Structures are given as C-alpha cells and as structure tokens.
Simulated assay, not measured.
Amino acid sequence: MTYWLLKNFLLGPLILTLFRPWVIGREHVPAKGPVIFASNHISFIDSVILPAVLDRRISFLAKSDYFTGRGLKGWATKTFFNAIGQLPIDRSGGKASEASLRTGLQVLARGEQLGIYPEGTRSPDGKLYRGRTGIARMILEGRVTVVPVAMIGTREVQQIGQKIPKAKRVGVVFGKPLDFSRFAGFETDRFILRSVTDEVMHELAGLSRQEYVDVYATSVKERATSAREQVMKDRRTPAAAATEATAADR
C-alpha cells in the first residue's frame, strides 16, 4: 500500500516532474506476468527513475544496511527504500548470493517484476563492465521474460557521492525481450551462465552506447581505492612516518 501511494500520488509524480524521463521501447514491456529487467547502473537514481516509468511494481535487491539504521534517519531511509521497491539482502558471508537468488525467484514466482543490475555495483566512471553470472542463474531458474533496459543521463543527474540530484532530463530505453529457453536445464553449467550473462551485457552495450570493459566494476573500484590509499601514504610527513615506524617496532 505504501508503495502504491507514493508511486501514484507523491514520489512518482515528483520524479516525473523533476526529471521528465523520455522513454523508448515501451512496447517491449510486458503488461503482465513475471519479468526481469536487466539494467546498466550508472547512478543511485536509476532505482528511482525506472519504477517511475513502469505501470507495475518493480522490486530491486538492496543491501540490508539500508534497512537497519536507527533513529529518525534510519526510519526515513528504511521507509524510502521500501517505498521504491527495494528488498533487503544480506550480502555478507558465503551464502549471500544464494539468498539473493532465492529472494529474486520468490518475487518472480508471484508474477511480479524484478530489476537487476548485472554489473553488481554502480559503474565508477560511466563505462559498462562485465556482468555477474547471478543474473543468468535467475533467468534460467525462473524461466521468465528478460527485458534489457538502459538508463541514459542519470550519471549527470547524480554521480557517486553526490547527495542531492540535479533536476535534469533523463532517458530510459527498453530493448526487445531476450529468449534463453534454449538453455533450459543448464542452470549450473558455468559456461552457459557466462554465455547468457555476456549476451545480456552485449544488448545493454548496444542500448546504452557505453564503452564496454571486460573486467568487473568491483575490481576497478578496489584498484582505485588502493591507489588513493597509496597516495595518502606517500603524503605522510616524515614525523608521522617515523612515529608509525616506532610504534611498529614496539
């Protein structure tokens, strides 16, 4: 009920007014039945724009940290993420990917729509990175319609670390549904899973016109973090370095 009220009477109209999203390929969106929307991910606001242009509810899998905050801020954050269809997932531990898979399949089994970012995280620089094969498992086990969707211009509206988005126009491009029924029964074959995932990413690259890089976005982020830490380490004063060295020798 909260999702329906905000989508139709508060958050939805506000999003449509501020960002005036243009849409291409709306005819590719099924009117009913379970659907996986496989999307590129260049901004936090992607998860706000996509629900605003769809008639039916769409759910995304989000880290559980967004739902466990305390106080007024924690309540507001939890309410917002529930309102835009985010489902809490514990991403820590070895069983995290399995939990995500099962939660997603439950959404699809109810005949609902599920949004997935195959890259697994936001692009650090606007490029399109290698997809994680979890989406392929969900596609093959769920045996549902898969619609590739490209978010256009959302990175210019809200970049990583930017708290308040700019009121600029964005776009959403829906591609033709993808058929992977030929791979039924191969849900555990890692070569098939990689093939399905790569086909999805190929479609996204064509729709979004992003430069494709065949490495994981998380690896790029980790290297960038290590580089920043090294720069900070190199900038230490001689006195600070001597103090650390002395402490290490104790």
Rank of each mutant, 00 (worst) to 15 (best):
K163H: 13
S195F: 09
F174M: 11
E199P: 03
A184Y: 10
R182E: 11
V146E: 08
V220R: 14
V173H: 04
M201N: 04
R169F: 05
K168E: 01
T218Y: 12
R235T: 11
K176G: 04
P148I: 12
R182W: 01
V213P: 02
K168V: 02
D198L: 03
A136V: 10
L128D: 03
V149D: 03
I135N: 04
R236E: 09
R143P: 03
R223H: 10
I135M: 07
G161Y: 10
M151G: 09
T197F: 01
R228I: 15
V200C: 05
T188S: 10
S123K: 07
D189N: 15
R155K: 08
G131V: 03
L178F: 03
M232F: 09
D179A: 07
A240G: 00
R228P: 05
I160H: 10
E211N: 12
D214Q: 05
V200L: 02
K176C: 08
R137N: 15
H202K: 15
Q158R: 05
G161Q: 09
I139C: 08
R137P: 04
V220S: 12
S195Q: 12
P238D: 06
V157H: 02
M201V: 10
K221V: 10
G120A: 10
L178G: 00
V170H: 08
I135Q: 01
